[in-house]
Simulated assay, not measured.
Amino acid sequence: MEATHRFEGMKTGARDGRRVGLRLYDRCEVVLTGPDAFVDAAVRYLWPQARPVPGHDDLPQVRLVLGRIAPGLVAGAPRRRVTLYSSPDGHVPDFNEGVEYTGVPGVDRLVLNPHTGSHFLMAGHRVCVVNPEFEAGKRDALRVVKQLVTTAFEAVGVVTVHASAFALGGEAVAVAGPAGAGKTSTVLAAVVAGARMVANDKLYARTDTDGTQVRGWTDPIRVIDAPGHRKRSATLATYFAGDADRVVVDPLPLRTVVLARVGTPSVPVRCEELDRTAGLLLLRREVLPPRVRWLGTEPSPASDPASPTADRFLRLTYGYRDAARAMGLLMRRLGA
């Protein structure tokens, strides 16, 4: 028999499950609560940036509840459309526009993601994600965690850059380019060649008079096993078999940006120097806008954060089958 869980005066049928406190990026602490499978999946997803901490009640809390809200809870409540995430490339079809219900008793805010069926119930620093489907609910609960982390960074002038990166000689090499350009493929090929992973798709970048330092978000890796095959997704923990030595956790100075052009057919392998002024413009185009503050508890972003910078820009062109040769040429250019 399911126990009845009470969330600020609201009833939803669910098992409480486990509770774990995590410190993320040495900055943001959060308590995750929900079914064992959710907590386990979240810890894997957030690896290696998550460290266990005591789950104090005054920390932000994200709870996943497998169930539905009472049908009459939002009946007659005023509603309006809200933006959950504004993606410049439009690649988040199930997390963009939502519906907010106002005046719901017992909560500060209640938002529905109509694409997944998740209801987000916000009360103080607690967020309860209610969905009868585990996978959809887990995905949306992890989006709340990412919202908390990213907005905490944005409050101190950190920007998010749409780029991948690897570490070489104590410095980060960012790999930029549009969707499908081969950013992940290039980073993974660099890792095979002896580099360490920094990020698969998103970088947190902080810039001051000494330059830009970056660290990576823990997005799962989407890999293609062979040309023409569909992409599959794997968490960093799975891909690197829990070997934290292969992934860089701490911030690294960004000195070089590689603009990738990777294609399916074999093409001449090229690694060309780019004009720094043109490269900086291209890099700054990959800076994502501040996240929409839809939870209602996020701190305001810093005004006019500094744009990321780098000293050197390269364009790397190769076909998937020539990745090893391309990495040899790139590593020589980087002085490795």
Rank of each mutant, 00 (worst) to 15 (best):
S86F: 04
D250V: 06
A234N: 00
L236C: 01
D322P: 03
F240I: 00
V173N: 03
P268E: 07
L66S: 05
R291S: 13
V247Y: 13
N113C: 13
L236G: 05
G182K: 00
L203I: 06
T212S: 11
G76V: 07
Q61L: 13
D245E: 15
L188E: 02
V30I: 14
K231P: 06
R284M: 06
L334Q: 11
G137F: 00
L314V: 03
G263L: 09
R325V: 14
Q49I: 13
V192C: 09
R15A: 09
P178H: 12
R68T: 09
L314A: 08
E133H: 04
L73D: 09
A237F: 15
S307W: 13
V130S: 05
V92S: 15
R222G: 10
L330Q: 07
D275M: 03
R255E: 06
A205N: 09
P54Q: 11
T12Y: 02
D26R: 13
G137H: 04
D311T: 04
M327K: 10
S87A: 14
P253D: 06
V127P: 09
Q49R: 14
R215S: 06
Y318A: 01
L283K: 00
G72H: 02
L112C: 02
A70Y: 11
K138Q: 10
D108S: 09
G90Q: 11
V145K: 01
A234E: 15
T309P: 08
H5A: 12
D58Y: 04
A163V: 00
P178S: 12
A310P: 04
A179T: 06
R143D: 06
W47C: 00
D36N: 10
V144K: 02
R143H: 10
D26K: 10
Q61G: 12
V65I: 08
A163I: 05
E8A: 15
R15H: 09
L73R: 07
L66A: 02
T212M: 06
V104K: 12
D219R: 07
D250F: 10
L295T: 09
V198P: 00
D201S: 11
D57G: 12
R291M: 15
L142T: 11
Y101N: 13
G124W: 07
A77F: 00
D304Q: 11
E154A: 08
G180Y: 02
A306D: 12
R291F: 13
G117W: 10
T150M: 08
R19G: 06
W47S: 08
V214I: 15
R261T: 10
K11W: 01
T317N: 01
G335V: 07
R27S: 09
V248D: 10
